[in-house]
Amino acid sequence: MSAPAPDPGPGGFLLQGPPPAGRIAAYGLLFVLGLVIGVAGSLLQGGWFPGGLLLSLAGTGGLFLGGAFATRTRAGAVAPAAGWLVAVILLTSSRPEGDFLFATGFGSYAYLLGGIAVAVMCATLGRVVQPGADPARLGK
């Protein structure tokens, strides 16, 4: 016989309640910082090619991983990544006059794909706090 499933409770499957207001504000701030980093990185990677691309990707990685460590959740990396993605997608569209910010070239594609790869890595590497205060392995 297997052990019975835990009771999901009234809020859903094992939810402890809504996140605190401070954490929601932190996610909002991280989203806005992701927008800013997306715009700044888009300008920097095209203006100063090899160094600007590396600096832009390092800045995005620092923000994503820093958000995960600051909030101690993976959502702390996803919030700035979502802001970064919104900014970059809006900047890739061309205007009716033919103006655009991203040129077709290696640098632009490396920034787009590299930023997505950095976001995925930081979201999966983010430290998640184990339930309880026991530092031992689970199931021991």
Rank of each mutant, 00 (worst) to 15 (best):
G66T: 04
A79D: 01
V128W: 08
L43N: 12
I116R: 02
A136R: 15
A110K: 06
G67T: 06
A103W: 06
I89Q: 06
M121L: 15
V129E: 14
L54M: 09
V78Y: 02
A68P: 05
A75P: 04
G59Y: 01
L15H: 14
P135G: 07
Y111L: 11
A136H: 15
Q130A: 15
Y111F: 11
F64K: 11
M1E: 08
K140V: 15
L63F: 05
D99S: 13
G34I: 04
A26C: 02
S42M: 01
L54V: 12
L54C: 14
F31T: 03
V86P: 07
P4Y: 10
T92F: 12
A79R: 01
Q16V: 10
L15N: 15
F102L: 13
I24L: 12
G139Y: 11
L125Y: 07
G83H: 03
D134A: 04
L65W: 13
G115W: 01
R137H: 12
A133W: 13
K140Q: 14
Q130F: 11
A82M: 08
D7T: 00
V36R: 09
L54W: 11
A79Q: 01
V129M: 12
G139N: 13
G41I: 10
Y27F: 11
A117S: 08
V78S: 06
V39G: 12
T73W: 05
G83N: 01
M121P: 09
A119M: 01
D7F: 03
L33E: 08
P135Y: 14
D99K: 08
Y109P: 13
V32Q: 12
L125H: 09
L29A: 15
I24M: 07
Y27I: 01
G62I: 02
T73A: 06
A87G: 08
G52M: 11
L53R: 04
P80E: 04
D99R: 10
G12M: 03
L112W: 04
L101H: 12
P6F: 05
P80C: 09
P96N: 00
L112N: 09
G41L: 08
L44M: 14
V118Q: 07
F64D: 13
G46M: 10
R95Q: 08
G17P: 10
G12V: 00
G34P: 04
G83F: 02
G115T: 02
G51L: 15
A58V: 00
A87I: 03
G22E: 05
L44W: 14
A3V: 10
L44S: 14
S56R: 01
L57Q: 00
G9R: 03
F64N: 12
A79I: 00
T104D: 15
L55Y: 05
L53D: 07
S93A: 14
S93I: 07
F64A: 09
